[in-house]
């Protein structure tokens, strides 16, 4: 697999984080693991990028966090807000349009199958 440069994620990280948090609340490191595992290892986002991005999304009201103590550890768990769910749906539509346009340019129009 060709490694992806972190810059490629710019502009898409918010949507990816929202998507990772959609099924259930998760703490920061679990989010990093989910991004890596969910993309088959292609999206190894630097740790230093994920935590501040989560904080920014919380500031924007798209996610919220709760502190809890689990097994003697203080842990911050993030979950989607209704506004975050709406933003994720919007981002999915935008991505479909964007990826279709980029695919059309990079790969070219669908060619008829050769017989």
């Amino acid at each position: 697999m060709i490694p992806m440069r972190p810059e490629l994620l710019k502009g898409h990280l918010d949507a990816l984080l929202l998507a990772v948090l959609e099924p259930r609340p998760q703490h920061g490191y679990a989010v990093i693991e989910a991004l890596r595992d969910g993309s088959g290892g292609a999206l190894a986002v630097p740790t230093g990028t994920v935590y501040p991005a989560l904080h920014r999304l919380e500031r924007a009201g798209l996610i919220a966090s709760d502190w809890e103590t689990v097994g003697g550890r203080r842990r911050r768990s993030y979950h989607l807000t209704p506004a975050g769910r709406a933003a994720l749906n919007e981002q999915r539509v935008v991505w479909e349009q964007f990826s279709a346009a980029v695919t059309a340019l990079l790969v070219g129009p669908a060619r008829p199958a050769m017989t």
Partner: peptide, 17 residues
């Protein structure tokens, strides 16, 4: 302080992993 607490939890998870 919150950032450091969160990083500590993340590091502990990484060590467990």
């Amino acid at each position: 302080e919150r950032i450091l607490a969160e990083l500590r939890d993340g590091l502990d998870h990484a060590v467990d992993h």
